[in-house]
Nucleic acid binder design. Structure first.
Lengths: 196, 196
DNA sequence: GTTAAAAACTAACCAATATTAGTTAATGTT
DNA sequence: AACATTAACTAATATTGGTTAGTTTTTAAC
């Protein structure tokens, strides 16, 4: 039986449980035996499906990172206005976070435990992502749509909010995505002060 | 020779190096031997100064958490206006982050590895902190100073930025604190959009 | 039904690590 | 100088955890 049964393949189950455990206990804190138990088998049996513990982390983190990079490339290269691009990037973050909060959480906090070569690739992807976002912000600033501010700091502020979103999703389950989008865009773009 | 020599006592050195290592490798990823090496002794010798590995984490995390809680209590109880209180809370975050970024980073990301009882206390402190901040925001909202929005979400947005600050400090070393304060307050309060 | 592959299990290995025990060197006090 | 305390060291223990080897059961194909 090849992985033709798609979604619920054994390896998928393992990846899902691994993601959950890596997220709650951390990569180092979660053991293969714990993962195996969650998926209903003995520890060493995992090796019929995976190559190593690191492979699990690698798949979870790198897939997400590549997806992210791919999607922002599209936005960056599009012919949208700068403000619309910013809007899309925010939506992108929300979408990927809502679809797979575990992978998102992992990508942002456990990437340090990737093996050397992949850690390098990850950093490259992340830097590329940040640079594209920065260019969009610079463009918007140049066109006079956003306020004058140190671009790096503005980028940091926006990303810190977007990157914390998975924690929010974990705490307040039944938030509707559109509501979150509305709040986020309002908060980031207009701040919290009431207009004088 | 009791710890009368203050700052540079052996235990302080150990705590400092432990903080750095816990931060970069994570609590589980950093070994006592590595800490010992950094401070110039063999692993087991650490036990002449500490009770356990967990004690190191405990001191680093809980001290910071208690300090945080203490300080926001003062602000919450003060007779300042709601907007001024918000202002002070932002300054508080910046101050504690700049003074001890390692402890801040640890408190926010490694608290999960505290032992059961202390983890409970930590969560209590954190919840109390968040509640006080929330009350301040509600008050400001009630008085019409800040925009109408789900308070929990607003709290989340502000905190996510403030709590990421240590990462910013790590990347861009020589940022002046006043500059950061100005940017942060502008960004949080007024957003990034230029007034129409 | 026989056979071959996939996927489970058990037992064992090996490395790392927190921790304990026991010992020795350094330090300071009387 | 003698003694007690502090703080270092080395050796050893117990546990955990990733991984391998070898074997048995389950599954699917002919």
């Amino acid at each position: 039986m090849k992985p033709t049964d798609g979604l619920t393949s054994r390896k998928q189950q393992i990846l899902e449980q691994a993601a959950k455990l890596f997220r709650t206990r951390g990569f180092k804190g979660a053991s293969l035996r714990q993962i195996a138990e969650k998926v209903g088998m003995e520890g060493p049996s995992l090796y019929n499906h995976i190559k190593s513990k690191h492979e699990l982390l690698s798949i979870l983190v790198m897939n997400n990172a590549r997806e992210f990079n791919h999607r922002i490339n599209e936005i960056h290269a599009s012919s949208l206005s700068s403000l619309d691009k910013i809007d899309r990037v925010i939506s992108l973050h929300i979408e990927l976070t809502v679809v797979n909060p575990d992978a998102m959480s992992l990508m942002l906090s456990e990437w340090t435990h990737l093996e050397a070569d992949e850690r390098l690739e990850y950093v490259k992807l992340r830097d590329s992502y940040e640079n594209q976002f920065k260019e969009i912000l610079e463009q918007a600033m140049f066109e006079g749509d956003v306020v004058q501010m140190d671009v790096n700091f503005m980028l940091f502020m926006i990303l810190s909010t977007l990157r914390s979103l998975y924690a929010w999703c974990a705490r307040y389950k039944n938030y509707n995505r559109l509501e979150m989008e509305a709040y986020l865009k309002q908060g980031i773009l207009k701040g919290i002060l009431k207009k004088a």
